[in-house]
Design a protein around this nucleic acid. Structure first.
Length: 602
DNA sequence: CAGTAGC
């Protein structure tokens, strides 16, 4: 086995060997003892100094030690054909390239999070993947590691003459090998920072492109060569149309916040980039989709981009949230400001290390953000605001000022709701609740990251009745207290989950279910479909899928299913992870069809 | 309807 070959990097002295890791990954430049994870309090003090010593690029804002205990008992669902087994307890077991492993070690990530344990072997095996995992549980590394490792091994082979991987061709056109797309500029920037750390001294070049910043600098970076391009859609399309970037050599495509990227407002751009800009088709590239939420209707859209993919869900979709204490208060619009003021006053005491606790306040509109920011400032609160009508410099300044604690209150629109890893956010306040419950999940996920606890307070007004039902379901799922009045609203409202998407959760609310398992017609003699109850069906996780051939009823029925594979599936509770494979039984038969064999990319 | 996203 490859793990016996793994040789820890030479500088791995034992004082490093303790669980620590990433939120969304990062180097611990600053680190504050974690009030809520006392189990690690005594052995973390040396993170930053060890780190700085290594000169590994800059300051990882998203530093942090993972409280692994918080993740030990999460449910996992995996389905698809021939699912590669997870690794257990260390990155040493993975088949990642040595250069990357060295950086992982430098990052002090000694132990993969659950999403990493499962996703890395799947992605390393070259499989397409649709993955759901809680906010703050380490998704960025989960897709970055296999991509970086994969490119490194391609290059290794290339030097022996097997592959030719063009980078800038001298004609001013950049040919990235991997493309990572994200829905906001700040998130792209964050992913870029992370990926650079992971690719440190490997020779790989990571470049980021997004709007609102001068194009010249980004273009110069592209000209110097790019292996991994991180981008937001608009600027990328611009560069492609100007023929400064070509996607014709793409072998890895990752969509972070994938459901967002395929939702209205982004879907067309993504389809254009992926399907109409010369990118190799599914089967000729590897596609990785990650998010904390993955509504059924979006899963169906996403299937267009994938081939014989594996669906992976770690923890309830839209949940991590047992770590986040959620409160819902009945506050009418006219009372919100006073209520907020009281809340902020009540938490004015010194926070971690004498810093004020950071509070992130979400509002519905850009104008609302400005108004509330102004009002807070006038009332003596050091606040700032971020939204899409601000110029990029202001956006970045606001974020920086919030992270540093200079302005411990940040008023934000949904521009800040997804992916941003801001350490030490103690409290997320939904001043205005979003219309979509998934947005709520992402917003509160700005706290309670990397296994730490957090607090989320929502102001529920009359206008929010449409999401009452979904909110109650979510609170129950996360084992939170549900106010009686809210339960009443939920029962009285005829609204189902959403105004126009009531079917989105298909067969299982928040279940992180693979839609292929409950929307497909049952295949005879394969009773495995539709057996997903609440229990954990103990299953043999791998080598269960051997059959081929797809029922004719599947084949031409829908574009959405053209690439889908229907295969084995397993669930288990995290309690079983340590003895993985020991106590699982085969769940049932499997069916699938021969996957498209990758046939090169040009 | 809001929000994100290029000049």
């Amino acid at each position: 086995m490859s793990q016996s070959r793994y040789v820890p990097p030479h500088r791995g002295n034992t004082s490093f060997a303790r669980p620590r890791g990433r939120g969304n990954g990062g180097f611990g430049g600053r680190w504050f003892p974690d009030q809520v994870s006392p189990s690690f309090r005594n052995d973390n003090f040396d993170i930053s100094e060890k780190f700085d010593e290594l000169e590994v690029i800059g300051e990882g804002e998203n530093s942090g030690v993972i409280n692994f205990d918080a993740y030990e008992s999460v449910p996992v669902e995996v389905s698809g054909n021939n699912v590669p087994p997870p690794v257990n307890n260390s990155f040493g077991e993975t088949e990642l390239e040595e250069g990357l492993k060295r950086n992982i070690e430098r990052c002090k990530y000694v132990k993969p999070t659950p999403i990493q344990r499962h996703a890395i072997p799947i992605a390393s095996a070259g499989r397409d993947l649709m993955a759901c995992a809680q906010t703050g549980s380490g998704k960025t590394a989960a897709f970055c590691f296999p991509i970086i490792s994969g490119i490194l091994s391609l290059k290794a082979r290339s030097s022996s003459g097997l592959y030719s991987l063009p980078r800038g061709d001298g004609g001013g056109v950049a040919y990235p090998t991997a493309l990572i797309l994200a829905p906001t500029r700040e998130l792209s920037s964050q992913i870029h920072d992370e990926a650079k750390k992971f690719a440190f001294q490997t020779g790989l070049k990571v470049v980021v492109c997004y709007g609102g910043a001068p194009a010249g600098h980004q273009l110069r970076n592209l000209e110097r060569g790019v292996d991994i391009l991180v981008a937001t859609p608009g600027r990328l399309v611009d560069f492609i149309e100007r023929e400064r970037v070509s996607l014709s050599k793409i072998q890895y495509l990752a969509l972070d916040e994938a459901d967002r990227m395929l939702d209205m407002g982004f879907e067309r751009q993504i389809r254009k980039i992926v399907q109409q800009m010369n990118m190799p088709p599914p089967g000729s590239r590897q596609t990785l989709l990650f998010s904390a939420t993955f509504p059924t209707d979006i899963q169906k859209l996403a299937a267009d981009f994938l081939t014989d993919y594996i669906f992976l869900s770690v923890g309830r979709v839209g949940s991590s949230t047992e770590l986040i204490q959620q409160k819902v208060e009945l506050v009418e619009d006219t009372d919100k400001r006073n209520y907020l003021m009281n809340l902020l006053h009540s938490q004015r005491g010194p926070g971690v290390n004498g810093k004020k606790p950071l509070t992130l306040v979400f509002v519905e509109t850009k104008r609302g953000a400005d108004n509330l920011h102004f009002w807070l400032s006038r009332n003596g609160f050091a606040a700032t605001a971020i939204h899409g009508d601000k110029v990029q410099m202001e956006r970045e300044r606001a974020l920086r000022s919030f992270k540093s604690g200079d302005t411990p209150v940040l008023v934000a629109t949904d521009v800040a709701s997804r992916g941003l890893d801001i350490p030490h956010v103690a409290h997320v306040i939904n001043f205005d609740l979003p219309r979509d419950i998934d947005d709520y999940v992402h917003r509160i996920g700005r706290t309670g990251r990397a296994g730490k606890s957090g607090l989320a307070t929502a102001f529920f007004s009359h206008q929010n009745i449409p999401i009452a039902k979904a909110l109650v379901a979510l609170l129950q799922e996360a084992k939170q207290e549900v106010p009686t009045w809210l339960r009443d609203y939920a029962q009285s409202s005829s609204q189902s989950d959403h105004s126009h998407r009531s079917h989105r959760y298909g067969g299982g609310k928040y279940g992180g279910r693979d839609f292929r398992n409950f929307t497909e017609p049952k295949a005879d003699n394969n009773s495995y479909f539709g057996t997903n109850g609440n229990g954990y069906h103990a299953m043999e996780p791998y080598n269960t899928v051997t059959s081929h051939g797809i029922p004719s009823s599947f084949t031409g029925s829908s574009d959405n299913f053209s690439n889908a594979a229907f295969g084995g599936s397993y669930h288990y509770a995290g309690a079983n992870t340590e003895s993985y494979g020991g106590d699982h039984k085969v769940e049932g038969g499997a069916l699938g069809y021969a996957s498209v064999v990758p046939s090169g990319w040009d």
